[in-house]
Design a protein around this nucleic acid. Structure first.
Lengths: 205, 205
DNA sequence: CTTTGGGCTGAACATTTGTTTATATTCCTA
DNA sequence: TAGGAATATAAACAAATGTTCAGCCCAAAG
């Protein structure tokens, strides 16, 4: 039973249900009993497997971070093809199942400010910085006066799609990470990256 | 008693302490007793004044949203001078006391996804869109192929400073909304807005 | 077959939670 | 000055929370 298929152990089921619930409501507003109920298991078993609710949260953090790192490494090696721009957020969405709770959990992780989220942010930035350096070396991207800030700017332009996706969908009337919205968004970003967004008159001010 | 030692009513004190605690830890992880303790008041008084913890949260939401709206209106009228770029986030920070919990609370409000935050986001977007239209009409900014998306792009570039300020400070080594960081960030954003960030070779791809 | 050990549970426990109730104290006003 | 409203609190309450504990179940080792 235990080693039949690893991903169907009760432990893994509990972890995945907790991941889903944490992603939607946040860890503070999810109870051990809710997780146990969603996993079809007793609350005591949750504690038995993870020591405490906080221990479970740490395991989920680690799991999501490792999924993220896997995708980040593949992106760094150029294994992820982005259809329009060079959006990693878009590629992330494409690589995961459509109903995956990972993006929403990543959002919380990145914004929470605790160590796991900080680490994820740092790694994303490191890859982003390296990618920008490659593009500069390839003569495609201009280095600019402040390359580190420029790399951060490019990264954050990507990251924000993950963070304010719902709010943008609300005001734009189209999901900026959906089929139509992603195209429109990528086209506009590319246009700004190519031509800037000031007119010649504006530039000469 | 109310005017003896403190010019502020206990109700206002409770609201402000709750605002501070909610901003740092999030409403779900702050207890009524913590708020009462911080305000130097009994837990029962908190309920007496606001009906419930949820009622208190709603009042704080409304209060922060109204502070935000006030600043947004002033910005829309051009009353807020931004030193470097046209960053509203930067102006917001400058107009508030340095230790104000409002920016941190706004961050939570914007990301929480409930109605109060959605409204704030919509209003910010409306002002952002109007500002972009003015700049286009003045011949300073290029309208682009997709003006709505372009306005959203500009707005979100600004908004992100509020949302990932701490994470950026961590990887950049300098607070992007502090004296030095704001200048570096604004210069780089302006450079991209003016010249784009692709080289001529990159453009001709 | 017996033993053993881990997965698993029901029931209970100690705290913490938001809230209520009854009661004081203070302030304004008729 | 009497009285009612507003302000405030201590104490208690019911519900919910994370966690513990004794013991059941069952597959596999001896």
């Amino acid at each position: 039973m235990r080693s039949a298929n690893d991903d169907r152990t009760a432990r893994a089921i509990i972890r995945d249900r907790a991941l889903e619930l944490f992603a939607v409501h946040g860890p503070a507003r999810v109870t051990v009993r809710q997780i146990a109920g969603a996993a079809g298991v007793s609350p005591a078993l949750v504690i038995h497997h993870f020591g405490s609710k906080e221990g479970l949260r740490a395991v989920v953090d680690e799991h999501v971070a490792s999924v993220f790192d896997g995708l980040l490494q593949r992106a760094a090696r150029g294994e992820l093809v982005t259809s329009d721009g060079a959006s990693f957020a878009e590629a992330l969405l494409r690589e995961l199942p459509p109903d995956s709770p990972v993006p929403a959990y990543l959002r919380r992780l990145l914004l929470a400010g605790d160590s796991a989220g900080t680490e994820v942010f740092r790694r994303w930035f490191a890859v982003s910085r390296a990618t920008v350096e490659e593009l500069v070396a390839a003569g495609v991207m201009a280095q600019g006066r402040d390359p580190v800030v420029r790399a951060a700017f490019v990264m954050v332009n990507d990251l924000m799609l993950l963070l304010v996706r719902d709010q943008l969908a609300d005001v734009l009337g189209v999901d900026p990470l959906g089929p139509e919205g992603a195209t429109r968004w990528a086209e506009e970003v590319l246009a700004v990256y190519r031509d800037g967004l000031l007119t010649p008159e504006g530039e000469s001010r």
